[in-house]
């Protein structure tokens, strides 16, 4: 009797979210795979019948180059984010408590700030008439005719800018819990400061490093706004292609096909991490988390 009531409670508490996410997340995602095999109709909708032409069309070297560029940009952005996030998270975690709270807040504010605005801010300062360009030209560091905007460098710079807070937060959460006596122990056993950091601190926050990689790498694979606003024709990513198929020539099946490529690119690192972690998974909130 009691067991039955418990079952009932579980059912009613689970049903709303389960139903909602099945309807608006699972089914639509499955639909992407199905609709990629439908022809496009001339009015921007989905035609009847089945075709593999769309998938075959993805072998176009243009798309391969873009997929490769997407991976490369995401990889570099993730690497730069980690290089900046680890020392920052470490410094914030080790700061005296009052200053730590202030630093933490300064790191969190960009996290809450509008994504579009943060990208736009860079567009205006990298602009030929913008402050950075003028300063660099003044210092003689760049040629007046050079272009800071609309290239791959700008895309990576702004991707790092927008995702860095998401990398810092999970690493900070782990660094804050880290037992720093372990660093003392390593020093005591003869390790130099950097050896202690590499052999004891980094392994100690490994889980958070994985989280940080995922929260930067995966969203940057799906990047669309950043290359759209500060990138040029030579720095388009998969996301731009998907959006173009949707908004420019309204070819939903092709957009679906490109999305499948993106899904595969996202799944690869995820499955890799899951395989590494084996059966450790259990119900717990992710460290730090982050909005994509």
């Amino acid at each position: 009797m009691k067991n039955l009531r418990r079952r009932g409670q579980e059912f009613f508490l689970t049903l709303p979210s389960f139903f909602w996410l099945s309807l608006f997340f699972l089914i639509p995602t499955a639909l992407v795979f199905i609709l990629a095999f439908r022809p496009a109709d001339p009015f921007g909708g989905i035609g009847r019948g089945w075709t593999t032409a769309t998938i075959e069309g993805l072998a176009d070297p243009q798309y391969l180059a873009i997929a490769w560029r997407t991976l490369w940009v995401s990889f570099l952005s993730t690497a730069f984010c980690l290089l900046l996030a680890v020392p920052t998270a470490y410094a914030v975690a080790r700061a005296p408590e009052r200053r730590r709270n202030l630093l933490l807040m300064l790191v969190i504010v960009p996290f809450w700030t509008s994504f579009l605005i943060r990208v736009f801010a860079w567009k205006s300062i990298l602009h030929p008439e913008g402050l950075i360009k003028k300063t660099l030209v003044f210092c003689g560091l760049v040629d007046p005719s050079s272009q800071l905007l609309y290239n791959l460098g700008a895309v990576i710079l702004v991707t790092v800018y927008t995702f860095l807070p998401f990398a810092i937060l999970p690493i900070y959460a782990a660094a804050e819990k880290f037992d720093y006596r372990l660093l003392e122990a390593a020093r005591d056993l003869g390790a130099r400061p950097f050896q202690a950091f590499r052999k004891v601190f980094l392994p100690g926050i490994r889980q958070a490093l994985v989280t940080a990689v995922l929260v930067v790498f995966i969203p940057s694979l799906g990047s669309y706004i950043v290359p759209d606003i500060v990138g040029g024709p030579g720095s388009e990513m998969l996301g731009n292609k998907i959006a173009q198929r949707v908004f420019v020539d309204r070819n939903l099946p092709l957009a679906g096909g490109l999305s499948i490529v993106l899904i595969l690119a996202v799944l690869a690192p995820l499955l890799g991490v899951l395989a590494l972690q084996g059966k450790k998974a259990r119900i717990q909130p992710p460290e730090g988390g982050g909005k994509p």
Binding site: D179, R181, L182, E184, A185, A186, R187, D188, L189, G190, A191, R192, A196, V200, P203, G204, R206
Partner: peptide, 20 residues
């Protein structure tokens, strides 16, 4: 002298064993 260059070793209260 920094700790790594002293011929002295410590047993910490919490032991500070490396968990990994």
């Amino acid at each position: 002298l920094p700790p790594n260059r002293r011929p002295v070793n410590t047993i910490f209260q919490s032991y500070a064993l490396f968990p990994h």
